[in-house]
């Protein structure tokens, strides 16, 4: 089985973010592997270990992605592709999916594993759109993957009415939630080996496509402005005798907030 895993470099959400003149202030930001993609990497490596698979990752954009890709190598991914092209500066999910389609078509993959969402967009679209372009089945929000045979996998998905168990014919795309696994920490030996491994860096031309073909200049949607989000203020906090303060708070919920 050949598995393609998508990995995006994203801003660290734990850090404070400032917005000025409609843009996020770059100063003080740090970039990390998208948490959902780290789970996708772990899921791929587990499939390799348990069922035998060849694992490749692809990352689009993000400038210098060497550290992130090496970390994925150290976790057990075998091949890395980095697509970097200034034409993709305004890319939205459907453009990223078009680029991923080109990567997929060059590699004859059986399974694509993407993160459920990128933590910088919180959008959750790219993998699903990719599957539409490829015309292959797709299940999103997956929390377990089991290989049935060469042509089929069985996945669990968190749905509205409970957990859905779905059998998928390969090739297929799945998008995984972070709760699918606990990503491993790379070990020293893996880290040392990862340093020697090459990364296949390409622009769109090297990938065999062009700005026009992926519609890079005309995204279906674009962010025109960032704004500060509404923040809540800390309210009243009570310490002391549990019986007293709890009775007080219940009174406030009923008579001040009027929500009881």
């Amino acid at each position: 089985m050949k598995i393609l895993t998508t990995v995006k470099k994203v801003v660290d959400v734990e850090l404070t973010m400032h917005v000025e003149d409609g843009a996020i202030v770059e100063d003080g930001l740090q970039y990390v592997i998208n948490a959902w993609d780290e789970s996708a990497v772990e899921a791929s490596v587990q499939l390799k270990e348990n069922n035998g698979a060849e694992t490749t990752l692809v990352s689009i954009g993000g400038g210098d992605n060497t550290d992130m890709i090496r970390r994925c190598y150290a976790m057990g991914i075998e091949n890395g592709i980095h697509i970097d092209d200034p034409a993709l500066a305004k890319a939205d999910a459907s453009i990223f999916a078009k680029v991923l389609q080109k990567v997929y078509e060059k590699g004859d993959y059986d399974l694509v594993i993407t993160g459920k969402q990128a933590q910088d967009t919180d959008s959750g679209q790219t993998g699903i759109i990719l599957a539409e372009y490829l015309g292959v089945p797709c299940v999103s929000n997956v929390i377990a993957i089991e290989v049935m045979d060469d042509q089929h996998i069985k996945v669990s998905r968190v749905g509205d009415a409970g957990t859905e168990i779905v059998e998928l014919e390969l090739p297929a795309v799945v998008t995984v939630d972070v709760s699918i696994n606990e990503p491993r920490l790379p070990q020293m030996r893996g880290i040392m080996m990862a340093k020697k491994k090459a990364i296949d860096v390409m622009d769109l031309a090297a990938l065999g496509t062009s700005d026009d073909e992926v519609e890079g200049a005309t995204p279906k949607s674009e962010i025109v402005e960032f704004m500060v989000s509404k923040t809540r203020k800390a309210g009243q906090k009570f310490e002391g005798d549990a019986a007293e303060i709890t009775a007080k708070v219940v009174d406030l919920l009923a008579n001040e907030a009027k929500v009881l």
């Binding site: 959400v13 973010m17 005309t218 949607s221 674009e222 962010i223 402005e225 960032f226 704004m227 989000s229």
Partner: peptide, 23 residues
């Protein structure tokens, strides 16, 4: 068509311009 949406774990809001006539 323009939409407003939170992103980055609600840390910021985005104004997004739609370039198609359907959303």
């Amino acid at each position: 068509i323009e939409v407003i949406r939170p992103a980055i774990a609600n840390k910021v809001m985005q104004r997004v311009k739609v370039n198609t006539d359907q959303l």
